[in-house]
Simulated assay, not measured.
Amino acid sequence: MTTLKAVYINTTLKRSPEVSHTGGLIERSRVVLEKAGVSTTVIRAVDHNIAPGVYPDMREDGWEEDAWPELWPLINEAEILILAGPIWLGDQSSESRKIIERLYAHSGQTNDKGQYVFYGKVGGALVTGNEDGVKHVASNVLYSLQHIGYTIPPQADAGWIGAVGPGPSYLDEGSGGPESDFTNRNLTFMAHNLVHLATMLNANGGIPAEGNVPSEWNDGKRFGFEQNPEYR
C-alpha cells in the first residue's frame, strides 16, 4: 500500500487561508488513508488560476493563464482521486463542475495499454453543506468519474449536512459535524474501500486491456459486438 498516492481536490469557493468546512472533512479522511500507508496531496482548486474549458491546456484556446497543466501530473500519477466540495442550491459547486470538465479534457488520452487514461484508477466523493443535497452531489460526481474511466468502489462517498435548512456548517462550534458517527463511519469505509480497490488494481496491472482499447475499435476490431445480431 505504501506505493499508492491519493489526491484530494477541494472545490470550495473559499480561497486560503479562509476556513473550508470541506477541508475539515478532507483532513479526517486523509488521516485514515495515511494510516493505511497512502501518501496524500490536497489541492484547493480556487487557489489556482484554473481556466474553464474542456482542453488539457486552455492557453492553447486563447486563455492567458491556466494552472491546470501544472496540476495535471499530480492527478495523473495518483491511483486515487477524491473530489470534495460543498453544496450550493442543492448542487455541486461551480469549482467542482469546472474540475470535472478539466478531467474530461484528458478523457481521449490513453495509458500504456492503449486504454483511456483513467483506467486502473479509483475515485470517491466527499460532500459538505448545511442544506440538503449530499446524495445528489455524490451521484453526479461519481457518475462523472466513472464515465471518464475511474473505477468506483462500494460506498465511495461520504458527507455531512446537519439539519435540513440553513444552519451551522461542518467546522462551526456546536455543529456536531466532527462528532457525527454516520459521517465518520462512511468516510472511514470509503477510505478503506478506495485503498482496497486501488491495491487490487495496482497488483493486477489495472483493468485488463480486452474489449476496451479505442485504437483497436478504430482499426475494426469489434470484441464480440454484432451490428445485426440474430434474435433467437
Rank of each mutant, 00 (worst) to 15 (best):
Gly176Val: 10
Met200Tyr: 13
Ala156Gly: 06
Ile80Ser: 11
Gln146Asn: 09
Gln92Cys: 01
Val137Asn: 07
Asn204Gln: 10
Leu197Asn: 03
Tyr104Glu: 10
Asp157Ile: 00
Gly220Thr: 06
Pro69Gly: 12
Glu60Lys: 13
Gly114Asp: 01
Gly24Asp: 05
Phe223Ser: 04
Ser169Trp: 06
Leu171Gln: 05
Phe189Ala: 11
Leu142Trp: 00
Ile9Cys: 03
Ala191Gly: 05
Ala36Thr: 08
Leu74Asp: 10
Arg97Asn: 07
Asp219Ser: 13
Thr41Val: 13
Ala125Ser: 15
Val31Asn: 02
Lys35Asp: 15
Leu145Ile: 08
Gly114Pro: 01
Thr41Lys: 08
Ser139Arg: 06
Pro17Val: 12
Gly133Gln: 09
Ser20Phe: 08
Asn193Gln: 08
His21Val: 05
Leu89Gly: 03
Ala67Leu: 09
Gly162Tyr: 02
Ile99Gln: 00
Thr11Asp: 12
Ala156Arg: 04
Thr12Arg: 04
Gly108Thr: 00
Met190Gly: 12
Glu179Tyr: 02
Gln109Trp: 15
Ala209Val: 03
Val32Thr: 15
Val7Trp: 10
Ile161Ser: 09
Trp72Ala: 14
Glu210Trp: 09
Asp219Arg: 11
Leu83Tyr: 02
Gln227Glu: 14
Asn10Thr: 11
Tyr170Asp: 03
Gly177Leu: 12
Gly224Gln: 14
Gln227Gly: 12
Ile82His: 00
Pro154Leu: 06
Thr151Pro: 00
Phe225Gln: 14
Leu33Glu: 02
Arg15Glu: 13
Gly174Ala: 09
Lys135Pro: 05
Arg59Lys: 14
Leu103Val: 02
Pro229Phe: 10
Val19Asn: 01
Glu77Leu: 08
Ala125Asp: 08
Ala78Asn: 09
Gly108Ser: 04
Glu70Ala: 15
Leu81Arg: 06
Thr2Phe: 02
Thr40Pro: 02
Asn193Ser: 09
Glu77Ile: 10
Leu83Ser: 02
Arg44Glu: 07
Trp217Ala: 14
Ala84Thr: 04
Glu64Gly: 01
Gly162Cys: 09
His196Ile: 14
Pro86Ser: 14
Gly108Lys: 06
Glu77Asp: 15
Asn184His: 12
Val164Leu: 12
Val46Ala: 14
Glu173Pro: 07
Asp47Val: 11
Glu79Thr: 03
Leu126Asn: 04
Lys5Tyr: 10
Glu79Asp: 13
Pro214Glu: 08
Asp61Lys: 06
Arg102Thr: 13
Glu34Ser: 12
Ala67Met: 03
Gly159Leu: 03
Thr2Lys: 10
Gln92Ala: 07
Thr151Asn: 04
Leu13Asn: 09
Arg44Trp: 08
Asp47Gln: 12
Val31Ile: 14
Arg232Met: 07
Ile82Thr: 07
Val7Glu: 04
Ser180Trp: 01
Val122Arg: 00
Gly167Met: 08
Asp181Glu: 09
Gly149Val: 03
Trp88Met: 06
Ser94Lys: 07
Val141Asp: 02
Pro154Glu: 12
Gly108Leu: 04
Val31Thr: 13
Ile80Asn: 12
Thr199Lys: 05
His192Tyr: 14
Ile75His: 00
Ser29Glu: 03
Gly123Cys: 07
Asp157Cys: 05
Glu65Cys: 07
Thr12Asp: 06
Thr40Ser: 14
His192Leu: 15
Ala6Tyr: 06
Leu74Lys: 15
Phe225Thr: 12
Lys135Gly: 14
Asp47Glu: 11
Gly85Cys: 13
Gly24Ser: 04
Thr128Val: 08
Ala105Thr: 02
